[in-house]
Write a protein that binds this DNA or RNA. Structure first.
Length: 770
DNA sequence: GACCTGCTGCGGATTG
């Protein structure tokens, strides 16, 4: 293995030597032979910054150089043509393509190889050069590849006819999503147009470490026409340090009496900011200021709204204390300029910098390592917690994670779910699953993706002009990734598309685009398969601050927080989708951002039950119990345990309170959704929050009777249950789907009938006292 | 009581 690099082209060995590297990393050495062979797919799974991209590009470029030596180069140059593109690199982010382009420059120059960044913002000149003379490496997004296939498939056929490798960066970011399904379909269509279905182009997937590696090759190439070699990074993991800090939000009553007495800065508060009533949020910001100032940190705040509030508060604290600001927000609605200036500042490491961010800084973009990662409010999944934690741990030091959790002070009005401190318990559960079990949520690769299938039908017809239904089915569902789609589903889809004039069938059985289909495919927003809310541009003077998805009504004179500062709305142009704002000092109420529902995994909820049932969240290390909670978090935990025991939740899943019944399933949202939908179907008044189902004005005896009855019945299928749900359109092209497919797709995504069945069987046993 | 990603062709203004 130590001499693995000797298999590489001499010039590439020289390049490695010139980098001053101390030999190749483990994954880099292990990847050389399978990639050079060019006969298999390869999955390279390694932690961030383990040199995955070089692990691919060094052997791949080596293979490219060798096959080019002395062959036809003179002839092609004379004709003004290249000898075809050798490597197609696909990335989920434009920013990653730009990073990668910079990193490849020196190697490409040495090998005299053309490298072309190809996305919506990359220069037309570079694309034109590549168009004239296709060769070397293209770095592209799935959407740009779609546009090439539809608008210029003749060129694609010619330019990619001798393609040697397709490499997909950040493969885990695609896995299981609509966009991932789109990508796989694009790759099949590419093999089809270049007549390579029988001699497949090797696919190389680069990914952060994944849960179940064995299942990934199936996802990388659903038709299994090439084997796959898995290369894993075994390098020792750094240690992790975790702390959970609890905060108590004073009840409304306490706040009111506080403000009457006018003692805003109460005695135990270390709050050092602008005078306003004590809130847990203010205490959180005060602690963040103290913990983060002077270092380099990431604060994940879960929503853009909270991200803005915290970033603004921290900047205000800097101003108040007359020190330079070092806290900046980073999220998807901020302009590219604001985001990039922060990314550059983090990268340079010259000034202490803390980014308050959403998942925009979770993956991809190179910002180096930071001192610590802070999570404010519980993360939505163990997988994202893990990815965020991976950003911490400079110079081989331990990764440091702080979790700040706010729970409400208990008074007479406190709800049962609030008393259980479920957000805190969820945080504990996620930390334990990550550290003890080394578990995180797998991607759901069982979904149908009908919306994306409809998109691909339109795109493929757009690409070929006309195609027969049976050819379309074979291409997309047999050779391509839509392997779960039955011919009957496909027929139903096509006839609905015909009725809506998305397509038309000609006399010779060719399907062509209909009037509506032409309009959809012709519009530039067609290429992406994912849905985006309407965005308004936020403008002050001549400067665009960024964009904001507007779901609730925004009014003139209203105050908003944006880009870490306060603004007042002056004018709203509905046609141009522009909001004019002016900078203001002083308070304001931000608008609400979007809706949506979380999906907590089964295993997280079961771990929460285990913690409460055992009365212990600590991590056992040998004889010791490691307590990662601070004093307030411990107090909140003991309140939770009190409530858990008072209602006998260990044995009793249904309890009465204030005339309502609560069902504690301790299961994931799919199973909770399933029972909720069944209760609604049978006319109960139901609300589900944090995995707890509340049924209004009914006693637990009646609920138990209903559950008993349900346990002995044959449950409806997920599709049948979906028929009872009024609003099911979640994806971009759902509005064109026939009802039967919409129900199948929604049912598979939202419900888990088997999971509910198992829970009901357990319930039956406990309820009968068995 | 959630987040993120991406996209064309062309007309007009500006610059070398």
């Amino acid at each position: 293995m130590r001499d693995a690099h000797l298999q590489l082209d001499y010039q590439i060995q020289r390049w490695i030597f010139n980098q001053g590297w101390n030999g190749l990393r483990e994954v880099q050495a292990k990847a050389i032979a399978p990639i050079l062979s060019g006969k298999t797919d390869v999955l390279i799974s390694a932690a961030t910054a383990a040199g995955k991209t070089e692990a691919f590009f060094l052997p791949a470029c080596s293979a490219l150089v060798k096959s080019d030596n002395g062959q036809n180069i003179g002839l092609y140059e004379k004709e003004g043509q290249g000898n075809g593109v050798g490597i197609l690199y696909i990335s989920p982010l434009k920013a990653l393509i730009n990073d990668q382009y910079r990193r490849l420059e020196s190697l490409a120059e040495l090998l005299d190889m053309q490298v072309t960044p190809w996305h919506g913002d990359s220069p037309r000149s570079k694309k034109n050069k590549q168009k004239k003379s296709p060769s070397g490496i293209i770095l592209i997004t799935p959407e740009s590849l779609e546009s090439l296939l539809i608008r210029d498939s003749g060129w694609v056929k010619q330019a990619f006819s001798s393609l040697k490798y397709i490499v997909i960066d950040e493969f885990h970011a695609f896995l299981g999503s609509e966009r991932g399904q789109h990508l796989l379909s694009l790759l099949t269509r590419l093999e089809h147009v270049t007549e390579r279905l029988n001699s497949p182009i090797p696919r190389v997937a680069l990914s952060a470490t994944l849960g179940d590696l064995k299942s990934v090759p199936q996802s990388l190439r659903p038709n299994q026409s090439l084997p796959c070699v898995i290369i894993e990074d075994d390098e020792a993991k750094a240690s992790i340090k975790v702390q959970v800090k609890g905060y108590i939000e004073p009840s409304q009553l306490a706040l009111e009496s506080d403000s009457k007495k006018n003692n805003f800065e109460s005695s135990d508060s270390q709050y050092i900011g602008i005078q306003h009533p004590y809130t847990a949020e203010a205490q959180v910001c005060s602690d963040l200021y103290r913990l983060c100032r002077g270092g380099s940190h990431l604060i994940f705040a879960n929503s853009r709204k909270r991200t803005e509030m915290i970033a603004t508060e921290l900047s205000d604290l800097c101003e108040h204390n007359i020190v330079p600001n070092e806290f900046f927000p980073h999220h998807g609605s901020l302009s590219k300029e604001l985001r990039e200036s922060l990314e550059t500042r983090l990268q340079k490491e010259a000034l202490p910098t803390t980014a308050v961010c959403t998942m925009t800084l979770e993956l991809g973009i190179d910002i180096g390592k930071v001192d610590t990662v802070v999570q404010v409010t519980a993360p939505h999944s163990v997988a994202s917690l893990r990815q965020r934690l991976g950003r911490s741990g400079r110079r081989g030091g331990s990764a440091v994670l702080r979790m700040l959790i706010i729970e409400k002070e208990i008074d007479k009005d406190t709800s049962l779910t609030d008393k259980l401190r479920l957000e805190l318990i969820q945080s504990f559960a996620m930390i334990r699953l990550l550290i003890i079990d080394k578990w995180f949520e797998p991607a759901d690769t069982e979904l149908y993706h009908f919306s994306t299938l409809l998109h691909q039908v339109l795109a493929t017809i757009g690409q070929w002009g006309g195609i027969r239904a049976d050819q379309l089915y074979i291409l997309l569902c047999k050779q391509g990734p839509f392997q779960q789609i039955q011919p009957a589903h496909f027929k139903s889809l096509l006839s609905q598309m015909g009725e809506l004039q998305l397509l038309t069938q000609l006399g010779n059985n060719q399907l062509v685009l209909g009037i509506v289909g032409e309009r959809i495919v012709g519009h530039y927003t067609f290429y992406a398969v994912f849905k985006t809310p309407e965005e308004y541009r936020i403008v002050t003077g001549n400067r665009t601050l960024g964009t904001l998805p507007i779901e609730t009504m925004l009014l003139p004179e209203q105050y908003i927080i944006f880009g870490g500062k306060r603004w007042q709305v002056k004018n709203i142009d509905m046609d141009k989708k522009v909001v004019d704002v002016i900078s203001v000092k002083g308070g304001g109420k931000p608008p609400t951002f979007g809706g949506g529902s979380m999906s907590i995994h089964d295993r997280v909820r079961q771990e929460m039950y285990e913690i409460l049932n055992n009365g212990d969240y600590r991590i056992r290390v040998g004889e010791q119990h490691l307590d990662f909670a601070d004093k307030t978090a411990r107090q909140l935990f003991s309140e939770s345990i009190d409530t858990f025991n008072r209602y006998d939740l260990s044995n009793q899943p249904v309890v009465d309170k204030d005339g309502n019944s609560y069902i504690f399933m301790w299961r994931g949202d799919k199973i909770v959704n399933t029972l909720t939908a069944l209760l609604i179907r049978d006319d109960f008044t139901v609300e589900a929050y944090a995995g707890v189902i509340c049924i209004s004005k009914i006693d637990s005896f009646q609920v138990c009777q209903f559950l008993q009855k349900l346990a002995s019945q044959i449950l409806p299928t997920a599709t049948e249950l979906a028929e009872t749900v009024p609003f099911k359109m979640t994806e971009k092209f759902d509005e064109y789907l026939p009802d039967d497919l919409l129900n199948i797709g929604y049912g598979a995504q939202a419900f888990d009938i088997i999971g509910l069945k198992k829970w009901l069987e357990d319930f039956k046993k406990t309820d009968l006292g068995l």
